[in-house]
């Protein structure tokens, strides 16, 4: 189910900015309403204590994907998924590539868009790209992760984080119904664990 991807191989003839990607899942039920493709971007400088995706922090890690190529991949999944979720890492630290990807998705599909961010809405509003980015997003989950306010429910890692519904496609109930965590065991025995309430997977018990 899980995949990592190259920067090339786009069926789109258009050149586009590269998005540095930490991980990609073709189908998840724990990253927003319904079944969703998920992109975890690579790179975050916010340094929230207790963040459970530390491997996504380095700006040198992950792999670069062309946004048209990633758009191709997501568009091909459109019949089987309800939407796309962008997580990270910090998506808005790559604003040009994020905007290009969301334009591509909106142009080619009817998929809904959920985006996680460690920035608040007020902080994001200072980004030159934000007015257009906002037009392409159905739900923005905004704010730093604060370990002392850990919630791990309804896609909110901590209670201070704020869900912003920019369209009428979803309501707060849709977030409450999202499973807290998901583990997919693939036929070859590899596991992918994801969600807002991470499972402690011990390498000593499960291997790595």
């Amino acid at each position: 189910m899980g995949e990592r991807g190259p920067r090339t191989g786009s069926r789109s003839s258009r050149a586009g900015p590269a998005l540095r990607v930490h991980g990609f899942l073709a189908a998840s039920r724990a990253n927003g309403p319904g079944v969703r493709a998920v992109v975890w971007v690579q790179g975050c400088s916010l340094g929230c204590p207790g963040c459970f995706n530390p491997a996504s922090h380095s700006f040198a890690g992950g792999e670069e994907w062309s946004t048209p190529g990633l758009g191709d991949r997501i568009a091909a999944l459109a019949p089987d998924v309800e939407g796309i979720t962008i997580s990270g890492g910090e998506p808005f630290l790559q604003p040009a590539a994020l905007l290009d990807l969301l334009r591509e998705i909106r142009r080619r599909t009817r998929l809904s868009v959920v985006v996680f961010s460690g920035f608040s809405l007020a902080e994001l509003s200072r980004l030159p790209e934000f007015p257009e980015l906002r037009e392409h997003i159905d739900i923005l989950l905004a704010g730093r992760f604060v370990a002392a306010e850990r919630l791990a429910r309804g896609l909110l890692g901590s209670a201070n984080k704020v869900p912003h519904f920019f369209t009428d496609r979803y309501s707060p109930d849709d977030l409450r119904n999202v499973p807290d965590c998901e583990v997919v065991i693939n036929p070859d025995g590899t596991l992918v664990a994801t969600g807002i309430d991470p499972v402690a997977m011990s390498p000593q018990e499960l291997g790595k």
């Binding site: 998920v38 459970f52 664990a193 994801t194 807002i196 291997g207 790595k208």
Partner: peptide
């Protein structure tokens, strides 16, 4: 952010 971990299983739990 939502969590993401990929693990390759090795037999470790008898």
């Amino acid at each position: 952010m939502s969590h993401y971990t990929r693990i390759r299983t090795r037999f470790a739990d008898r």
